[in-house]
Amino acid sequence: MSLGFTLVYLCLLVVIPLIALFTKASSLTLQQFIAAAWTERVRAAYFVTFSSSLIAAIADTILGLMLAWVLVRYDFPFKRLFDSLVDLPFALPTAVAGLVYSSLYAHNGWMGQFLLPLGIKLAYSQSAIILVLTFIGLPFVVRTVQPVLESLDADVEEAAACLGASRWQTFTRVLLPSLYPALITGFALTFARAIGEYGSVVFVSSNVPGKTQIAPFLIIQRLEEFKYAEATAVAIVLLIASFAMLIVINALERRTQAANSAAN
């Protein structure tokens, strides 16, 4: 009975809507699809979406590795507080994130009044989108790397030290390789989340085609013009990109699990 209910629920909420999306897309000919999903303006929006997401995901990977390292290895005052603050971007509604970031980096904002005279423009520019996406994705890498770092045995590092490796060599040659799967999973999760993000970006973007106009915005614009098929074409491109990410993540998780069970 529970299985039946689960299947019916998933069918109604996930499968039928997805079928509707693909049916709509398949009602277009290839030429129409390209005309809707691959014009200059749409390509520019993909470029803004994907390049901003990529830079934000790279930034989050570096920051996440550092935060995970510091939170696992070092002791400092209020460590527990900082540890739990990492999760805030998950709990904070994206609209609030967008609103507050647009206020912080505006010309009279807390950060903007110092940064703008230095020529750093972090409001209504692509940098603003990257910044807010970095905020949204901050917890992913930290939370994937942290447990792996905690589970590493001390003796590996001791062995490396005994064999004459410097601390840096131990880190890059011994520790980092065992963190790669977790880092890539975290990166992929951040990237996938950033591609689809809309709520926070709409507050900090000036919506200039080719500069700050993102692909999800185009979907909404087409919908407001009642051009359902055109909106669907753009959506399909985004969907395929995020499904590809999901497949990568699943494959990695399976490999890590296999490696773990082999080690035990």
Partner: peptide, 14 residues
């Protein structure tokens, strides 16, 4: 894995 905007679109299509 599905963008919220795409999720909304699916229900508009229905």
């Amino acid at each position: 894995a599905i963008s919220p905007v795409v999720a909304g679109l699916m229900f508009v299509l229905l």
